[in-house]
Nucleic acid binder design. Structure first.
Lengths: 352, 352
DNA sequence: AGAGCGCGTGGGAGCGCTCCCAGCAGTGAT
DNA sequence: ATCACTGCTGGGAGCGCTCCCACGCGCTCT
């Protein structure tokens, strides 16, 4: 009713006004807003009515200031990785994060940590505890960022652990299983001289895919031929280069497992130019099940990662971590740092 | 030095502490932090030194509370548009936004406005003035969201105006020019019976592409054949359906301009199945210059939109708008609402 | 009947900042 | 010497919340 004093901002209702309206104290309204159990049903109803009538929405800034939490998490995007950014990976993950956040009051902040200046800013940002938690995607093995975050005691979840003993909580797809099933599939098709173009081996997940390739060969009793493995870097150009090298070295290869669809696209070009037909002469399998795979000619068999799901799980894990902390920030000694691994799935198309 | 009182949060330095260290008052430090000109050089230097020594970072929540601004803008993502989300459009735009924001203190918030519940939440969010401005992407003609935002007086920029007289500031690519140059290119190749599969015509940009197609025909003195235009919906399935209808109706067509690459991919399938070779029998041009275009067989000629640039321009425009406002929010009467249009570019490949 | 307990509750004391109003020199005009 | 006036500066008064202490009330337990 009575417009408060000088009526500064043109009038969003405040806690105080709601309290007056409901005939209770500020503290009580706060308790209702925050779902404290120690409010009588009658009072709660009265407050809720007042909130509805006034269209009250809590002021986040004030809450953040008083409670020393932000109700926001950050998704840190290593932007120079144009590759990462351009691929559906990113948007799918974002969708997962969005889904997980939908039932929450949490806000999502996007922070780009491309160049050094941006990383500097990020460091400050985190140091100032301006987010409750951090989601890290696609971090390189030698990136110091995760350790910095860990040191600051900020809850964080990383997608794609940097190594087998990643200290941070992590969510990953089963790269080993993916590489293994792709290779096993080729073996099942009767292929025996199966080449492999790896990803960037400074990415742990890429190593795991290669490990999976080896596992499948071993399981089938096929002796590994070092000459059939050629390093790539996830790029199309890398795929071309690697494929050319492989053809030169082992012209009798009858299948290729590429560590990404883009790599497979590069390999396909070289195979075509060399007059090899796909899949008759050479079967081809990619990784990621991206748009490229579906639209390639012939459509590319590929390993699908549950990326959206990964985003969801990461977010859930992070929310759990942030919730666990003491009201007045103190990182509990023995929080478990779960290493979640989600299954992949082979999508069979005409290239194999 | 002296740890402040009970030393609550484990100790980020505050303005007060910086002031003490520099031997000045709180107000002066605030002035320095905010770049006020009315501070003597000596004082400024002293304060800056103290800031550096203490590693002071301003507390955003406190600032937001006191100054009634948030230093954050929101990118509103209409999530149910899976199409939109999955395409590079989104990530490219995000990159543009990120670039523009890099030199700023502004933070980027991602808000999903998929279902009704999320939109509800968004409305509340905006009503509470929790962001200084809004970036809107890919909004449908009948979406009430922009009008709501305009009513609240929140600065906003929309990508892809909803109509020719969009009241909000907008940034768009030259859809008319794109459609025109794609069609003109086909004409230049000697094609005369050029079919067109439209996008969703409730999207203004799609209409404009079709207008461009008509313009190019008119300019070449080719009489338009209504039977050569078939509505699509940007999807692959829509492309297939439309292409089938076109082939049935005008089997002698010699070119197709599709309103999106995905649509073109659908069309290509049907053309192949009908035994038409590309580009010999039928030339094909798409729109978006997506990964699909590059990897199609044959690689697809397509119209490239400067999406990253659009993101950048949108953000700049928005920042300008937010800066223009009076310190104590009052939307100036006659802010101009610029309608920026960025040029497209035809990327020629083997499909035409 | 009195002490003790626990549940609901009100409201003071901040959180760290910005805004703004005085106040204090120093300068030039009267 | 007095009086504006200007250029910097200090610090009070909030911003709207959360936290927490203290208080009152109705019970149960001796």
């Amino acid at each position: 009713m009575a417009v408060h004093g000088r009526g500064r901002g043109g009038g969003r209702p405040t806690l105080e006004e709601v309290a007056a309206r409901a005939g209770v104290g500020r503290g009580t309204v706060s308790r209702v807003i925050n779902g404290s159990p120690s409010v009588s049903d009658a009072t709660r109803a009265a407050v809720e009515a007042a909130v509805a009538e006034l269209g009250y929405v809590p002021n986040t800034a004030a809450r953040a200031l008083a409670a020393n939490r932000t109700d926001a998490i950050a998704l840190v995007v290593p932007e120079p990785e144009t590759r990462f950014f351009a691929e559906p990976y990113f948007s799918e993950m974002l969708r997962g994060v969005g889904t997980a956040l939908a039932d929450t009051e949490m806000q999502l902040l996007l922070i780009f940590a491309g160049n050094d200046r941006e990383r500097q800013r990020l460091a400050q940002y985190l140091a100032a505890h301006r987010v409750d938690g951090v989601l890290l995607v696609s971090v390189h093995a030698d990136d110091p960022l995760p350790d910095m975050i860990a040191e600051l005691g900020i809850p964080a979840v990383i997608s794609g652990p940097r190594s087998a003993d990643e200290p941070l909580a992590s969510v990953d797809s089963d790269n080993h299983g993916g590489g293994r099933s792709a290779t096993a599939h080729l073996i099942g098709q009767g292929r025996r001289r199966i080449a492999h173009i790896t990803g960037r081996l400074d990415v742990y997940g890429a190593q795991r895919r290669t490990d999976g390739y080896r596992t499948a060969l071993a399981e089938a009793g096929i002796e590994e031929d070092q000459g059939l493995v050629e390093p790539g870097d996830f790029s199309e150009e890398g795929g071309r280069r690697a494929m050319a090298a492989l053809l030169e070295r082992r012209p009798d290869l009858d299948a290729v497992f590429a560590a990404s669809d883009v790599t497979a696209a590069g390999a396909r070009q070289v195979l075509r130019e060399a007059g090899r037909s796909i899949p008759d002469d050479v079967a081809l399998v990619g990784y990621d099940d991206s748009a490229i795979a579906r639209h390639m000619d012939p459509p590319l068999t590929s390993v699908r990662q549950p990326i959206t799901e990964m985003g969801r799980v990461m977010t859930d894990l992070l929310l759990e971590q942030t919730a666990v902390r003491e009201p007045r920030r103190r990182v509990p000694a023995g929080v478990r740092r779960p290493q979640t691994v989600l299954p992949t799935q082979l999508v069979r198309r005409q290239s194999s």
